[in-house]
Design a protein around this nucleic acid. Structure first.
Lengths: 123, 123
DNA sequence: ACTAGTGTTCTATTTCTCTATTACACTATT
DNA sequence: AATAGTGTAATAGAGAAATAGAACACTAGT
């Protein structure tokens, strides 16, 4: 797993797992890999993985069962809400940063469309 | 100045000053506030400000003149290039993150347009 | 010369993140 | 009962980031 050294690893692990839940790579109720296996997978320490999990457990997105494992919540409403929240945050942040560079709404849309076509032609 | 505690302060200061240069708040050749005054303004330490400046000096975006002050580069090409670079980075990052949430190009555009109209009606 | 205002550098200390290691608590299987 | 596989917690140490404080180098005005 690739890490951005400007952002705490535990936070990036949390984001990564949230993405898996939202995209359905991890289904509601599904068991996660063990903390030790996750640590090996992302090349991080068990404690770092545990810290990421702790925040998700506190948020109710993951149910922890001692001796059994960690499980994605069965509450699909929570998953939907999380997805909506993350999308809104991403869109808002991107917009505000580009707006802060004095780009108009039209210019922002144009830049994004341009990026999409570029990307579309490459792959 | 508001800081995101997930990102180093020196890095956020750097980004902030780059934005001022790009938007023209700081003109080419213009003198910056002194490091001590900047430290007071953003509520950070002189050394932290100096670290941000050092990177911009190394990048050639700021000319440092000992005893006189720090000045925005006169090379407008560098400023244009920086703007292009930052916009590309922001757009790419936003796109990739939303794409990672399984949003199609159309959905990404729709989300952005929706955010813009919401924002437009509020302000 | 003196002084004030610049950028620059250094040391010491604190806080946070991450790691490594160990131990403990619980579950399921044998 | 014993064992292996879970989550959980505590400790100690390394490293980066940030702070505080002091000092040094240079410029300009008096």
């Amino acid at each position: 797993m690739h890490f951005d050294d400007k952002i705490p690893i535990y936070y990036q692990i949390k984001t990564h797992i949230y993405h898996e839940i939202i995209t359905g790579t991890l289904q509601p109720g599904e068991k996660l890999l063990s903390v030790r296996q996750l640590a090996l997978d992302v090349t991080a320490n068990v404690n770092t993985v545990q810290r990421a999990l702790s925040e998700m457990i506190a948020a109710g997105m993951i149910d922890s069962k001692r001796g059994k494992g960690n499980f994605v919540t069965m509450d699909e409403t929570k998953i939907t809400d999380l997805k909506t929240q993350l999308i809104t945050e991403q869109v808002a942040r991107a917009y505000q940063q580009l707006h802060a560079l004095n780009l108009s709404d039209e210019e922002i849309l144009t830049s994004l469309k341009h990026y999409m076509t570029q990307r579309g032609n490459v792959e």
